[in-house]
């Protein structure tokens, strides 16, 4: 089945840029998964379904870079981050990159510091670090 091509609608000309939180209209309502969440979801795939090379590469990737290894830690992390009023992309980047310094956040996620003051960012980073440290293996 080929992709549905909506008639009379052209591809959006707007430029996609993560720094400006512009992801195009297709992704406006999409959820941004953490690498750790993707790892847990891919793990549950029935073996017969997991054959494409892209799937295997992705699985290898998420297993390498997943920072939180069990369901409880990941759920807790999302709950913690949802308390703060930040964009879901920023949320995912915080969880994926696990920055340690406020300056690091400013450089890696340039859209975030405009909304939050340094102390708030520091507080988020400390909460992430604590969760990462005390997750059960």
């Amino acid at each position: 089945m080929s992709q549905p091509t909506p008639r009379g609608r052209k591809a959006p000309p707007e430029e996609e840029d993560a720094a400006k939180l512009a992801f195009g209209e297709d992704f406006e309502h999409a959820e941004f998964l953490f690498i750790s969440e993707a790892a847990l979801l891919l793990e549950r795939t029935p073996p017969g379904q997991a054959q494409t090379s892209n799937f295997q590469k992705t699985q290898a990737y998420v297993n390498t870079f997943s920072k939180f290894h069990n369901q409880e830690a990941v759920t807790e992390l999302r709950k913690t981050l949802l308390k703060y009023n930040i964009h879901k992309y920023e949320l995912a980047q915080l969880a994926n990159l696990c920055p340690e310094e406020v300056d690091e956040v400013k450089s890696l996620i340039p859209s975030l510091p405009h909304k939050l003051e340094d102390e708030k960012i520091r507080q988020i980073l400390d909460e992430i670090a604590a969760l990462k440290k005390y997750q059960s293996q």
Partner: peptide
């Protein structure tokens, strides 16, 4: 689950 890279994104 889809994966789309965006300009300005930081990845490992």
């Amino acid at each position: 689950i889809v994966f789309k890279p965006f300009k300005g994104e930081v990845v490992d």
